[in-house]
Simulated scan of single mutants.
Amino acid sequence: MSATIHEVIDERFRDLIIGSAQLEQIYTGCRWAEGPVWFKDGDYLLWSDIPNHRMMRYQPDGTVSVYRANSNFSNGNTRDRQGRLVSCEHGSRRVTRTEYDGTITVLADRFEGKRLNSPNDVVVHSNGGVWFTDPTYGILTDYEGFQAEPEQATRNVYRLDPDSGHLTAVATDFLQPNGLAFSPDENRLYVADSGSSHKLDHPRMIRVFDVVDGKTLANGRTFCTLDSGIPDGMRVDVHGNLWTSGGPAVHCYAPDGTLLGRINVPEGVANLTFGGPRGNRLFITATTSVYAIYLAVSGAQKP
């Protein structure tokens, strides 16, 4: 069974996986599971079930409960450097932060006076800057949000300044920007372009940018092109390897863009995150279910 789970393409992949580790389905019953984020201090996983308009919580004893009903069709989630939940909401077309007392603060909902499309995924830099993608998936239909015409001329990657609250479009040439992740040293930003979901001849690519002074991007280029599936959510491990969703698999790429291997999953994968007490358990949101598997490597950002 492990041979079908772990697909080794480059021998370096063997150092990242545990051959005897099994892929566990820890929950099923979603319509489109997305946005997993691990809370080490609370010992639980949160994720979004977008069409069901809710966020779910998993605890290691197997308990699963609704964390937030009426989630505004939340999608991607992360934690800021103070441990607060930061979420992208399709329904309200905004990025929010959940404060320690449970109240919700709106971080961004407009750019240059016009509504955002439908914020999709989000990461926070060590300097506090909030970076997020803004494709149109949440306004294409009423399934994952509310159907509407886009007000933005382009589908951008944004940075929200933590001090001024100023929102800057740091990349404007994507067809559909999606998952994003910083390299361990934060000198690189990886961004998935999932435009092939609706334009079949569009490259299934992940791009990489140099991060300048922690605030702007330069030297955008293709990092890799998936030979199957569409790139979506992603995370980076402590060695700088990029783990990304794409079809019914998690794909692992070395920092030089070489495909090292895959973890095959029974359903289409949307997103993933590292978690568990040691950060070496990979949680995978895949269509109707959430899966987990132990690895021989931990995530770069401590949960």
Rank of each mutant, 00 (worst) to 15 (best):
Y294I: 09
T105D: 12
T244K: 05
R97Y: 07
R235D: 04
D43R: 04
N120I: 03
L175P: 00
P177A: 07
D213P: 04
F39A: 11
V123L: 02
N120F: 00
R57A: 12
E144Q: 12
P184W: 03
V124K: 02
V124G: 02
D237H: 00
T78R: 04
S298T: 15
I50R: 06
L160V: 09
R221T: 13
I50N: 01
D15N: 15
R57G: 02
G19N: 10
G19A: 13
Y190H: 13
M1Y: 13
G91F: 07
P36M: 03
T287K: 13
G279I: 02
N219Y: 08
F13I: 13
R262F: 05
D109T: 10
P135T: 12
G240T: 09
W38K: 03
Q82S: 12
G62M: 05
I139Q: 04
D121T: 03
G113K: 12
E34W: 10
Y253D: 00
I230R: 06
F73P: 00
G246E: 06
H125C: 12
V124R: 00
R14H: 14
V250C: 12
H6P: 00
Y27M: 14
S245G: 12
W32E: 10
I50E: 04
L260P: 06
R281H: 05
L45H: 04
R207F: 08
V106I: 15
Y294T: 15
G165C: 07
H6R: 15
F146D: 13
H53F: 07
A218R: 11
G195S: 14
K302S: 11
T154H: 08
A286S: 14
V64A: 08
Q301K: 14
R281G: 02
D213V: 08
V211P: 01
C224F: 01
Y143S: 06
D213H: 08
S65R: 11
R278Q: 10
G165E: 04
P231C: 12
R188P: 02
S164T: 15
T154S: 07
H125T: 06
V250E: 03
L46F: 04
L295E: 02
T273K: 02
G35T: 10
E151V: 02
D142S: 10
F73W: 07
P277V: 06
S228M: 08
H90E: 05
V208Y: 02
R31S: 15
K302L: 14
N241E: 13
P231Q: 09
I104Q: 09
L167C: 02
C30N: 15
A3W: 11
P51Y: 10
T78M: 03
S197L: 13
C88E: 01
H166A: 09
T285E: 06
K40V: 13
Y291G: 01
G35Y: 03
T287L: 11
I18G: 14
E7Q: 14
A153V: 09
S245Y: 00
Y67D: 12
A300N: 14
D185Q: 11
F13P: 00
I5W: 11
L167Q: 05
T287P: 01
P36Q: 03
L242E: 03
T273E: 05
G91W: 09
R97W: 04
L167S: 01
V106E: 09
S92W: 07
S87G: 05
L45R: 01
V265Y: 10
N75S: 14
R93D: 03
T225A: 10
I230H: 07
Y67T: 09
V290K: 02
T133K: 02
D41V: 10
Q301E: 13
E11P: 08
D213L: 04
D121C: 04
E151P: 03
N271E: 11
D232P: 06
